[in-house]
């Protein structure tokens, strides 16, 4: 019997967003990174177009972090001593983009400064040709104080600036617009809030082609199913033609997974959790692999091994039929 394969016909598609600028466009990146553009659900390219693969970014810091898992400290080792070295190591590990997070304080416990933020961004831009994202420490006043000079320093590079949240987005959007950058629009696991912040940002005059939507996901075991379903709903809405949900989606499995006990701690946990290193790596990889299935266009990771594993999964998912 011939089984008729059901196919969905969608009317909408995800917007294409390009991060980074080469010399041709006034930047210094060796290549640009385009995400989005899908006209079907994740990897179902038998019924629609998937022009770009989900991108994998590695998170680095402006200085060696104090509270990261020893497993991460071990794997990056010396490179963590300098943002430039760390960025290079991330590029060698196969990252598509560098996601640089600025710390709230320096190693001596003093406030981070605009000068330091500028310097670090310059070093990272000089060290690698990869497109760059820069996020503030996540405290509104400090974010604004650091990100404005960063946006100026990186003028023309089309970096992704973050993080715009409902309570603090105007300054970041304004400086991103003034310096030809993009923004990360983050909302807490809710379809309508996601849409609303995209609307607010675009109302300021930011073109939709320069907004990446971060729906927030939670880690495996810590609420990820909410994020997963919000992403599925956003993507379905996008494909059904709801314009303000058509931004590519960015998720952060590295940050989500490495703060949970299962990956952070090797001692004082139940024996039945199994061997620590493998468990920790599985936590990040499974969080990422699951979110890839719910429509992530860009994933920020911390461990190079996770990058390798998820990359090979994505390659296989998008390989042409044998």
């Amino acid at each position: 019997m011939t089984v008729e394969i059901p196919k969905e016909k969608w009317t909408g598609q995800v917007r294409e967003v390009t991060i980074g600028a080469t010399a041709e466009d006034g930047g210094t990146r060796t290549h640009t990174l385009t995400i989005g553009g899908e006209s079907t659900l994740p990897f179902l390219n038998f019924e629609g177009n998937i022009p770009h693969r989900p991108a994998l970014a590695i998170e680095i810091r402006d200085r060696k972090p104090d509270d990261w898992s020893p497993l991460l400290m071990e794997t990056w080792g010396e490179a963590m001593e300098s943002p430039a070295a760390w960025a290079k190591a991330a590029e060698e590990a196969g990252a598509d983009m560098i996601y640089l997070v600025l710390s709230i304080k320096n190693a001596d416990g003093e406030e981070n400064t605009p000068e330091n933020a500028r310097r670090v961004v310059r070093e990272v831009l000089d060290a690698t040709g990869l497109p760059l994202a820069v996020a503030g420490p996540g405290q509104a006043d400090v974010d604004n104080e650091l990100l404005v000079p960063v946006a100026e320093e990186a003028q023309g590079e089309r970096i992704l600036l973050g993080i715009c949240e409902e309570g603090n987005y105007r300054t970041i959007v304004a400086t991103a617009m003034a310096n030809n950058h993009l923004v990360q629009s983050k909302t807490p696991m809710d379809v309508n809030l996601s849409k609303q912040l995209v609307i607010l940002i675009s109302d300021m005059g930011m073109p939709l082609e320069r907004i990446v939507m971060d729906p927030t996901t939670g880690a495996l075991g810590y609420g990820m199913e909410y994020g997963y379903s919000v992403m599925e709903r956003l993507r379905l809405a996008a494909l059904q033609g709801d314009s303000m949900t058509q931004q590519p989606m960015l998720v952060n499995p590295g940050w989500e997974a490495w703060k949970v006990k299962e990956s952070k701690v090797g001692e004082g946990v139940p024996e039945s959790w199994g061997e620590w290193q493998n468990r920790a790596l599985e936590w990040e990889a499974l969080t990422a692999a699951t979110l890839v299935q719910s429509g992530a266009d860009m994933l920020i990771l911390r461990h190079p091994e996770t990058l390798k594993r998820v990359k090979s999964m994505i390659d296989a998912l998008l390989a042409s039929a044998a």
Binding site: L220, G221, E262, S272, W273, G274, E275, W276, N278, R279, E282, W283, L286
Partner: peptide
């Protein structure tokens, strides 16, 4: 059978 993989699954 590997608990550190089975648990997250």
């Amino acid at each position: 059978f590997n608990p550190s993989s089975l648990y997250p699954l």
